[in-house]
Nucleic acid binder design. Structure first.
Length: 282
DNA sequence: AAGCCGATCAACCGCAATGTT
DNA sequence: CAACATTGCGGTTGATCGGCT
């Protein structure tokens, strides 16, 4: 059993195509059409497998391919389509005349993806991403304000209640301690085993999937600790710590489709008119 | 000038889906 | 309906190039 190889490995050339090979393929398809890709190279006098010929034709030699840089409009279209379709490059390419799936995929991975990350957008979910480290810095600054009560009032109208409650878990509201927030960054990266207490560990190692980060343990512990606090509204039922704890490299595309693109409400917030953002910046 | 390194993209690989016998 | 063949697709690799030291 087993799959038959797409081509006989012996005597079949691989690697970059020469101009001569390209011309042979173009000439053959012009006169005969691609037909059966498996027998095409033999008929066209090419020492290539059919698969290689098909790829060369569809990704490079086809006359309707548009070469050159992607326009801004094309990039925006790709981003929009990707937010709905995910990595369905062929489906995206079908909506971009003259562009191949391979070209779009490459452009996404080398340009658009990086641009989105730089802009604070998760390229997988297309949702704004506030990195936990940034969050700790922001909240640390917030809760170390001299006029903390005023800041907290502003914050309660500024942030999603779930974020604010999260802050209450991360930072001791009763007794603000600058050292605590300065250690937080380190804590976020320090895994400890469940047998250990919620005491932050000094050394920083890379967490693994099987380890529980101190941050997570701390979160769980403090959820209980502050359960009776009435400073902040309770976490909504839809709040999902796991979604905050990680941004998956790949996510079920169906989820994003059903949830709708850019539908994350976790970080939804608006600025009150009298709010001065600079007051909260370092 | 030479070596290193990151970015880019053509091409390959393996698997899934679809078509054919 | 099963077995096999073909095509399509997405992830990955590796050659090449340009910038930097």
């Amino acid at each position: 059993m087993g799959r038959s190889p797409c081509c006989d490995k012996n005597g079949v050339k691989k690697g970059p195509w020469t101009a001569e090979e390209d011309q042979k393929l173009i000439d053959y398809i012009r006169f005969h059409g691609p037909g059966n890709w498996r027998i095409l190279p033999k008929n066209a006098g090419l020492q290539r497998c059919g698969k290689s010929c098909r790829l060369r034709w569809t990704n490079y030699l086809r006359p309707d391919i548009k070469r050159g840089r992607f326009s801004f409009e094309e990039e925006e279209t790709i981003i929009q389509l990707h937010s709905v379709m995910g990595n369905k490059w062929s489906a995206i390419a079908a909506r971009l005349p003259g562009r191949t799936d391979n070209e779009i995929k490459n452009h996404w991975n080398t340009h658009i993806r990086k641009r989105l990350i730089r802009s604070g957008i998760d390229p997988v979910t297309h949702s704004p991403r506030i990195d936990l480290l940034d969050l700790s810095s922001l909240l640390g600054a917030l809760f170390n304000q001299p006029n903390f009560s005023s800041a907290a009032t502003h914050a309660s109208s500024l942030l999603n209640p779930d974020v604010l409650r999260l802050a209450s878990l991360l930072l001791p509201l009763q007794n603000p301690n600058p050292v605590y927030s300065s250690n937080l960054d380190q804590n976020l990266q320090t895994p400890i085993t469940s047998s250990e207490s919620s005491q932050p560990q000094a050394e920083s190692t890379t967490p693994t999937n099987n380890e529980t980060s101190s941050f997570e343990l701390m979160m769980n512990a403090r959820l209980d600790d502050v359960a009776s606090a009435d400073v902040l509204p309770p976490l909504s039922e839809s709040f999902d710590l796991d979604s905050l704890m990680s941004t998956p490299m790949s996510s079920p595309q169906q989820d994003s489709i059903e949830a709708g693109a850019n539908s994350s409400s976790f970080f939804d917030f608006g600025f009150p008119e009298d709010f001065i953002l600079d007051d909260f910046m370092f």
